[in-house]
């Protein structure tokens, strides 16, 4: 339906956008917009242009516009992307289809409901449970660059949810803790300052945990921050197996 009333000079590109307005519609629809094409525009710029100039009711999340706040994830031509980090020039002159991230309930237009993830983080105790508590006066824990490297990659997650959109296991059954949450859990378990590895392992090794993962590997491919959640999960499986073997072979070795 909607096409822009504004006359655009120069090159343009077409955006087909998923719309859902629960206040007066029960089914989604797609609106088509013509937007100016600019070499240096990211997809988010085009969406902002639509909101400012054509249809002020278009709803979506964004903030930092520099790929670090994790707000602006959407499906762009079927691929989960941070819209502030992909350019119109990557798609031009083909039309683009913009949809809310897959596998999540849609609250409105391009806004998804991510309550599920927030709850999962908490369940996994994504914080330090000190192994040896320390007072401020005693200063910082010593942690060598090598110990830092053990978990650093897993701290880079911006909670953008792209990996969940790429994961069919999560799509089929949302009780799966999923790539980002499992990775964050592992991040803390690998930290030399932490002492709650065993507690977390119960959940990580459970049915909702790493063993639900069938290793499709797409989560790592779409991750904009190279966090490699698939790697974290596979390593979690290896660790779980080794621990199980150990406790079978040397029951006295573990509590």
């Amino acid at each position: 339906m909607a096409s822009s009333a504004t006359k655009i000079e120069g090159k343009t590109v077409t955006l087909e956008i998923f719309r859902y307005q629960p206040d007066d519609e029960t089914e989604p629809r797609y609106d088509t917009f013509e937007v100016p094409y600019r070499e240096d525009w990211v997809v988010l710029d085009a969406i902002n242009w639509i909101k400012d100039e054509v249809d002020g009711s278009l709803s979506y999340r964004w903030s930092c516009r520099m790929g670090v706040c994790g707000s602006c994830g959407m499906m762009v031509n079927g691929e989960p992307k941070l819209t502030c980090a992909v350019f119109l020039r990557d798609y031009y002159p083909k039309p683009m289809r913009i949809e809310p991230l897959e596998h999540f309930p849609v609250t409105r237009d391009l806004v998804i409901n991510m309550d599920d993830f927030m709850g999962k983080m908490e369940k996994l105790q994504t914080w330090i449970v000190p192994k040896e508590p320390r007072t401020i006066e005693e200063g910082e824990y010593r942690q060598t660059p090598r110990q830092l490297a053990d978990y650093k990659q897993y701290t880079m997650c911006i909670n953008c949810m792209l990996c969940y959109s790429a994961c069919p296991v999560y799509g089929l059954d949302s009780s799966f803790l999923g790539p980002a949450a499992l990775t964050l859990g592992r991040r803390y378990s690998l930290d030399s300052r932490d002492g709650a590895k065993d507690e977390r392992a119960e959940l990580i090794q459970s049915d909702e945990g790493v063993w639900s993962c069938t290793f499709v590997g797409e989560c790592s491919r779409v991750c904009p921050k190279n966090v490699d959640p698939a790697g974290a999960i596979q390593a979690g499986k290896v660790e779980g197996t080794v621990d199980m073997m150990k406790s079978m072979l040397m029951p006295w070795g573990r509590k």
Partner: peptide, 16 residues
């Protein structure tokens, strides 16, 4: 909230 179920042949929708 609008729920989009996975299509039956979901594996045909993405090369990965």
């Amino acid at each position: 909230d609008y729920i989009r179920p996975m299509p039956k042949r979901w594996w045909t929708t993405r090369p990965g």
